[in-house]
Design a protein around this nucleic acid. Structure first.
Lengths: 262, 262
DNA sequence: GTCGTGGGCG
DNA sequence: CGCCCACGAC
């Protein structure tokens, strides 16, 4: 059987429910992981998803910021909600699928503007978050798919200009090294680059602030899907749905989809 | 020649420019007076009006609240901006048409919630505003059309329930008496009731807070067009465009139109 | 209920 | 740029 899993930082699932429906209608993934839902669990637009066949819904939201959710056409059960900052922010939810696959959906902190632990506490929190994810990751002993907005673009080819972004949060060496440690801790396979090796252009985010985002194309690859080595062997396709960036009232992130043959 | 003049409390002309265009396309009044434009003069959507042939535009706006404007297909010149509160609020603008007709566009203060001068200063300011309009009105000696949101429903038949609203600001006896003095000061002809005498139902405003506004029909006649006696003799029709209340993203007020044969 | 504004955040 | 919220006004 085949299974398709998508991930999308939606930047308010309520405000953008229309393009989420459009995406599900066009791509029909079996499972969709959302980040930055920005909604408390009671206000999650459950009905819209159920009407489209996504009847299995696991939410972990909060007021105002952050929030993650997983909606699915195939059965799944909630497994855990981890708090890698121990501050109560809703940045992770994990589920188990019927075939035993674990799916972990995470929204890594953005990290503020200044790439300095002392001057900018948020930057330190981001690095600490990645370190605690690394420790968690090293203990995993079952096939897992880790997806979400990691807020780090690791490779030079993951940003529009390696040189221009070396001191910009999301692409600084210290973040890239922290992400490398996380990846090594479970031998995670970066499915994006597995299917589209560097130096291929591969971006998942374009700032709202650039009005001519398509023309200037100053993108970054902040969103990722990482698989346990055994699971990666079953991945048959991976793509970034870049056209979604130009839909009406878009998110600044676009969806990723991986197809598995299990 | 005939001349049609409309008046509409639009509750943000920028937010509702779409239905303003729809109204102009359908009714094509020669002149449209707007209240609660909620826009500073520099941000008034001039281009949209000019594109529809309303090339003569006189605005008197401010940040955030209030604001009035007159847009016209026929030539007119700004005549005055009166401040009947002496507090700088943009609640009036007057123009002269080529035929000598004066058109005065006013947005009377709502007056707050409690109908008591002592407990609620805004109520006193509303009564003072009407008193100063009365003094101004008694000195008029040229044919004038006074239009706008008067925020008073004078007759028992001007509200959905005379009894229920006797103590509700907009229909209290003290406001009704103040409006009667204003009317008497120039022998103003109330064109709404001139063409649709009581007890005919005649409402121009329905609260946003009643979701089933059409079914419950708890309206009030807060908007008016008053003519000097000599001018009123030339009025040939007057109507309230009630369907506008059910358009997409409506104002809580609907437009009024009077046609003159001059 | 539905505006505008201003601040937080990304 | 563009979301969420709090506030004040009507």
């Amino acid at each position: 059987m085949t299974l398709s899993i998508a991930s999308w930082n939606i930047n308010s699932v309520r405000f953008r429910i229309g393009i989420v429906e459009q995406f599900l209608a066009e791509e029909a993934p079996d499972v969709l992981c959302l980040q930055e839902t920005k909604v408390i669990d009671g206000d999650f637009p459950t009905a819209a998803f159920k009407a489209m066949g996504y009847t299995h819904i696991v939410v972990h939201g909060q007021r105002m910021h952050h929030g993650v959710a997983i909606v699915s056409r195939v059965p799944l059960v909630e497994d855990n909600r981890l708090d890698w900052q121990a501050n109560g922010e809703a940045r992770h939810v994990g589920v188990r699928l019927e075939n035993g696959l674990r799916l972990e959906n995470v929204y890594v902190p953005a990290g503020g503007d200044i790439p300095d632990r002392e001057l900018n506490p948020k930057f330190g929190q981001k690095l600490d978050f990645l370190q605690r994810m690394t420790e968690w990751s090293s203990g995993l002993d079952y096939p897992t798919l880790l997806v979400g907005d990691f807020n780090v673009a690791p490779l030079p080819e993951d940003v529009w200009s390696h040189k221009a972004l070396l001191d910009v949060v999301s692409h600084t060496p210290v973040e890239v090294e922290a992400l490398a440690r996380l990846q090594a801790a479970h031998d995670w396979v970066d499915l994006g680059r597995h299917f589209h090796p560097a130096p291929a252009r591969l971006h998942t985010w374009w700032s709202y602030r650039a009005k001519e985002w398509a023309a200037s194309d100053r993108g970054r690859r902040l969103d990722h899907m990482w698989a346990s080595p055994a699971l990666a062997a079953n991945a048959v396709a991976h793509r970034v749905c870049e056209p979604c960036r130009s839909w009406l009232k878009p998110s600044d992130h676009v969806p990723l989809i991986t197809e598995f043959d299990l």
